[in-house]
Simulated assay, not measured.
Amino acid sequence: MLFALPLPAFNPVLVEVGPFAIRWYAISYIVGLVGGWIYGKRLIANAALWTRQPGDPALFDDLLVWVTFGVILGGRLGQVLIYEPTYYFANPLEIVQIWHGGMAFHGGLIGAALAIVIFARRHGVPVLSYFDVASAVAPIGLFFGRLANFVNGELWGRPTDVPWAFLFPRSMDAAGEIVPRHPSQLYEAALEGLVLFLVLLVLTRIGGLKRPGLVAGVFGVGYGLARSISELFREPDGYVLGPITTGQALSLPLILAGLGLIWYALRRKDAAQPATPA
């Protein structure tokens, strides 16, 4: 067997009291949501970043609840319906046991987007501006979520002989052997999390939020490209056409939607104009 690093013996459970357990997977989602909430409120409260501030920053407190439910419901339904329908329909009780892992990003994205649209309509705030804020903070959750995937020893990479390859205990090949694999979860944490966060951070600081839809569009393109690149190293969940994986196919509509938002945001002649004094 080629040289490979053994996966550290992470205990997926942080605290366990009787039948109740708090898992690192759940903690990663909590940290991502809370971190996004804090950062999002600061973005909304910073008047210098906006042409028109999108409502009271306190509204973002309520939005957090809506987005949390959207991410959880959408992410789980995406995992069940897109990636593992056979398993979950055979084991329906597992569908609600989200602490065992199994959340599809694209499903969570749709759930969060629907939550934002409904929330914005109810409160009379600009939908695109809230999409922009949510997109700016989303890489925080992506970063911690991918780290949780690594801790859980799931969503591992393709077989490789690189010096930093890992042995994932549950990753057996067709011959039933555990072979060295790319730590693709860490690649995704870096690309979808850190790199994308920094790109959007710079964009918000140079006036991106003054053009509604621009930050959300760059997020869509950036995530789609980052995920598509990561899929080259990640063990595919399936193939759609030839070498195109399921993850890459699902990322294509996101890239196209992102390009559409960027085009719309940049062509609006009134987007960057200062607000008319009352």
Rank of each mutant, 00 (worst) to 15 (best):
G35N: 03
G70T: 05
I110V: 15
I110T: 07
L252T: 08
A174G: 01
F233T: 00
K269I: 12
V125L: 12
A249E: 11
G242F: 12
A190W: 06
G101Y: 06
G193Q: 01
R122M: 13
F105N: 10
R52E: 12
I95E: 00
P126W: 00
V162C: 11
M172C: 08
P19G: 09
Y25S: 12
V133H: 01
P169W: 07
Y25R: 14
L256T: 02
F131W: 12
W99N: 04
R205P: 00
F197I: 04
W156V: 04
V215I: 06
L250D: 10
A4Q: 07
G242H: 11
A165Y: 05
V125G: 07
F168R: 11
V67K: 07
L252S: 02
G124H: 04
G222E: 09
I206W: 04
P243C: 02
L14I: 12
S171T: 03
G18C: 09
V218Q: 02
A189H: 07
G35Q: 05
E235I: 05
F20G: 12
Y87Q: 01
R158H: 12
A9M: 09
L225S: 00
L256W: 03
P236K: 06
V218I: 10
V195Y: 00
M172T: 15
G108W: 13
V127W: 09
R76P: 08
G32D: 08
L254H: 04
V80Y: 08
R268V: 04
R227M: 00
L114K: 03
H123Y: 09
G111W: 13
A265R: 10
A175N: 14
A165P: 07
L155A: 14
I140E: 06
V202N: 03
L49A: 08
V96I: 13
T51P: 09
V15W: 15
L191C: 06
N11V: 01
G32A: 11
V13P: 10
T276W: 00
L200N: 02
E16W: 11
L250I: 12
A90P: 02
L198M: 13
M103C: 10
G193I: 01
A134I: 04
N152V: 14
S135H: 03
P277E: 03
V65I: 15
I82W: 13
L114T: 11
A21R: 15
V195C: 00
F69E: 11
A104L: 13
V67P: 11
G193L: 00
I22Y: 11
E231N: 07
D62M: 09
L109Y: 08
R158K: 15
P57E: 00
P183D: 05
M103W: 08
W156S: 10
D132M: 05
A48S: 15
V67T: 14
Y264E: 14
L155Q: 05
V151E: 05
A272R: 13
V151K: 11
E84K: 14
